[in-house]
Structure formats: structure tokens, C-alpha cells
Computed example of a mutant assay.
Amino acid sequence: MPDRNIGVSLLGEGRPVLAVVCFPVFDEMFTATEGGGAFLNGVRLRVSVKTSLDGALAGTGQAQRGHDPDLAQWMGAAFAAMTNSALYVRASVPVTHQLAQVAAGRMDLHWQFDNVRSHAAGVLLVQEAGGVVTGLEGKAWERASESYLAAAPGIHAAALDVLTA
């Protein structure tokens, strides 16, 4: 998998405050500090400016721990709903790669329902690039969240509506 990565994050009071993620195959180094912005190989990042979900490039990972039929049903329904709303939906891992792509404006949104423990670095990248990251109830993302949506501001509300319908 060429999108494998090596990443570290530092948490302060439960929030990511520093992120470094290296994608060696692509020779890309993503960095972010809380309040200091997000960068790719030293160049400042900005999320996409899209305002319509029908032109959005979306992604999800959805690798689940164990086999929970209800969770699998929820994941499948969400994937189908987003496929009917966005231009394109990608399901792949590692998830940090997708979050970095949202931060870089190459993708427009990413959501995850389960197994979100190691996503702090990617979340900080998106936030510091101007993206919106919330739990699916719409509240600000927290490390203890069981699910989240990271998206460009212009499509976050529409994507949240699709995922919670």
C-alpha cells in the first residue's frame, strides 16, 4: 500500500497539539501545530473551498474491531447514502492518509464510525488547514469520540445530514 505512513502526535489536555505524518513513498511530510497551521513539505495547507456535496470527493476507512453486525449495517448504509450524495466515495486505510488529503484539499471529507483512537494527527492536520471536525452529533471532536466527520467548511453540514439521516 503506497499510502502507508509513519506518524506521531502529541496530545495536550486531550487535544492534539502537534502532528507529524510522513508518507515515504510520496516523499511527503505533513506537519501541524495547534494554532500554527498545517503544512505539506513546508507549504501551508488549506482544505477545499467546495460548497456542494454533489461534487465532493469523500472517504472513509471503517476497519472495525471485532465483528458487530449492527455496526456493519450502519457503515454500509452510510456508505450507500454518501455514494448517492457525493461525486465519489473511497473506502480505504490507512485513515490518516485520507485525513491528510482532506487537509491538503485533495479530498473534501472523511468520516469514521469506529476505531478512532489513532486519528489525532490527521484530525489536527484538517483543523489547522481550516477544516471542520465534529462528532456525528455535531459537537466539537474529542479524542474519546467514537465517530467523527472531518470536512471542508462549505460541505460539512450537508455531509453531516447525509451521515445522520
Rank of each mutant, 00 (worst) to 15 (best):
F26S: 12
F23Y: 08
F30D: 05
F26Y: 12
F30K: 01
E13A: 15
G37H: 03
L18N: 01
E13D: 15
V20T: 04
F26M: 07
S9A: 15
A32C: 03
G35V: 11
V17I: 15
L11H: 07
M29R: 13
V20E: 13
G37Y: 02
C22V: 13
V25G: 04
E34W: 14
G35K: 11
T33A: 14
G14Y: 10
F23I: 04
F30C: 06
M29S: 08
G35E: 12
V21W: 01
F23H: 08
D27H: 12
M29Y: 08
V21I: 15
P24A: 09
L10R: 12
E13P: 00
P16W: 04
V17S: 06
E28G: 00
V21C: 08
E34N: 03
P24R: 04
G36L: 11
T31G: 01
E34P: 00
F23W: 03
D27M: 06
V20F: 03
F26H: 11
L11Q: 10
T31Y: 01
G35Q: 09
P16V: 02
S9L: 00
S9T: 08
T33D: 05
L10W: 08
L11M: 11
F23Q: 04
A19E: 00
S9I: 00
V21K: 00
L11V: 04
M29D: 00
L18P: 01
T31C: 07
P24W: 02
L10P: 00
L10G: 01
G36A: 14
S9N: 10
G14L: 09
F26Q: 12
V20W: 04
G37I: 02
E34M: 09
G14V: 11
F30E: 02
V20Q: 09
P24Q: 07
T31P: 03
V8F: 05
V17T: 11
G14T: 07
L10S: 08
V8M: 07
E13N: 15
V17Q: 08
G12C: 09
V17H: 06
A19H: 02
L10Y: 08
V25I: 03
V20S: 10
P16Y: 06
L18M: 10
F30N: 05
V17W: 04
F26D: 12
G36V: 12
A19G: 05
A19S: 14
A19N: 03
E34S: 14
R15Q: 15
G12M: 09
E28M: 03
C22R: 09
F30L: 07
A19L: 02
R15Y: 13
A19M: 02
A32G: 05
E34L: 13
E28T: 02
T33R: 15
L11F: 07
V21A: 05
